[in-house]
Computed example of a mutant assay.
Amino acid sequence: MSTFATVGVPLLTVAATLAGGWFVTTRITDHWDQIKKHREMDLAAAEHFQRLYGEFIVVWKTWNALEGKHTAACPAPEEARWDCLQRMIEVEGEVEALVAKLATERVLTETEIDMLGSVRQAFKFVRRTIRKGRPLNWTSDEVEPYAAFKALVAALSHMVMNSPGPQHRPSSAVAARNFLQITDNRHEITWVATGLRLADTPIPEQPARRRRLLLSPRR
């Protein structure tokens, strides 16, 4: 038996085994690193959205304090009203960016598309209310837009926190279609109903005039 047969073959076998083990270990490590990185990005996005919601609460409460009945005898400075509007526009812009991110990173169901489109319109509703100089009279969950708004915020936060992983990404064409559907104007009149469905809240039949008042359409 040759020296190669007695020494070389076992050495090659050991080398091949070590190389194979290194390759598999590296692939597994890379895979888990990607999952970890993706998870960290999701957590960062979720924390950012939660901060945006906190900013919305501040703007809402400030705006209602400025426009409340108890301030009628002492009108607030115009600068304060403008500041509320500007801050709400910034919040809305950040929400738009998050929605665009999700549209390009997720394979979305029709329900998720409706939810994201409704989230956009919910924040637009608040901005339009401030722009028109009206108080946001969300005093309890019996106010349907308020109940819908909270359900939509919770649904979006849950979606951001529960990513399917980096391997589930839509094609550019699918992402474009998703975003077009999310930004469709139909959500302007359906966002309250969508939010109430997410919260399993019954949607009562309402006269057309009252529904228009609740949704406060743009001027």
Rank of each mutant, 00 (worst) to 15 (best):
S171P: 06
G68W: 03
E67I: 00
R51D: 13
G68V: 02
T13W: 08
V24M: 11
K124F: 12
I203K: 08
H168C: 13
R177F: 08
A122W: 04
S140E: 10
P202R: 14
F56S: 03
S2T: 15
I57P: 00
I189P: 01
L180S: 15
W138N: 04
A76W: 03
K69A: 11
S2G: 15
G8I: 12
K37A: 15
H48Y: 05
P207I: 06
F49H: 01
H168Q: 15
D30S: 05
S216W: 06
S172A: 15
I89H: 10
G68S: 12
L85K: 03
A103N: 01
W63T: 03
F56W: 07
A15W: 03
V99A: 04
I113T: 11
V99Q: 01
S118E: 09
T190E: 05
I113K: 04
D30T: 05
D33Y: 08
V59D: 02
T194S: 02
I57G: 01
L196I: 06
E40L: 11
R51C: 06
V153Y: 01
L98Y: 01
C84A: 14
A19S: 15
S2I: 09
A148T: 06
R219Y: 11
S216D: 11
M161H: 14
I89S: 12
G93E: 11
R210H: 15
A16P: 01
L108R: 03
L215P: 00
S2Y: 09
L198G: 07
A103E: 04
G117P: 05
A199P: 02
A199T: 07
G54C: 09
V24K: 09
T190H: 05
T3L: 14
A147G: 03
E110I: 12
Y146N: 04
N137A: 15
P166A: 08
T13K: 10
T13P: 00
S2N: 13
G93S: 13
A16N: 07
P75A: 11
E205P: 00
T17V: 14
L198H: 14
M115F: 04
N185V: 10
G133V: 10
T3G: 04
A208S: 11
S2P: 07
G68F: 02
R39S: 13
K101E: 05
G20Y: 13
F56R: 00
C84W: 01
R218F: 12
M41R: 09
R169N: 05
